[in-house]
């Protein structure tokens, strides 16, 4: 599936390993949160990067204590209308200080891309056949924001107006 990063289609270094299949030790992989809970000891001493995938109903608090083990957290959107993931990402960043990659997976649409970036996501898994132009546009078509968010590092005042993206 195409990976969207910084408004463009990018290379995906990661692969998701479904539960039950063997986990390769030599490349970055994403496992489910359920598998992590069941088999966490088995990942002791792993050198290659590890990522974890949270279902929409699994909130940031559930993984908070283990965040230093993961270079990537994938947050699932069961339906694009289910906006819990926006808060999950923001909690990961603001409440738990997570600095690794946060990836949106599942059903998301380009019209949400700016919102994803502003709540702390770094990449998006887009559906096959997606229109890359719509993703690129999504970051530039609205250039003004009225509230602080996570796409800028400096502490922001409220009702800040200009949005810098990309």
């Amino acid at each position: 599936m195409p990976l969207i990063e910084n408004g463009r289609i990018g290379e995906d270094a990661w692969s998701f390993i479904p539960d039950g299949e063997p986990v390769p030790n030599d490349r970055p992989v994403i496992i489910s949160f359920e598998r992590w809970q069941a088999e966490r000891d088995g990942f002791e001493g792993r050198n290659a990067k590890l990522g974890v995938r949270l279902k929409s109903g699994t909130l940031a608090g559930a993984i908070a204590a283990d965040l230093d083990r993961f270079a990537l957290v994938a947050v699932e959107f069961a339906k694009f209308r289910d906006g819990r993931g926006f808060s999950t990402a923001r909690e990961l960043r603001e409440r738990y200080g997570y600095t690794g990659e946060i990836r949106a997976v599942g059903h998301v649409i380009p019209d949400q891309y700016l919102y994803l970036v502003r709540t702390g996501f770094t990449s998006v898994e887009a559906p096959e056949g997606t229109n890359p132009e719509s993703w690129a546009n999504a970051l530039t078509e609205v250039t003004i924001a009225f509230q602080p968010s996570l796409d800028d590092t400096a502490p922001l005042s409220l009702l800040r107006r200009k949005l810098k993206v990309g």
Binding site: G83, F86, Y115, R118, L159
Partner: peptide, 16 residues
């Protein structure tokens, strides 16, 4: 008015 601005295209709270 402050709320109007702050909630306008709020990135976290548009898919409540």
């Amino acid at each position: 008015e402050i709320l109007r601005q702050w909630t306008t295209m709020h990135p976290e709270f548009t898919y409540l």
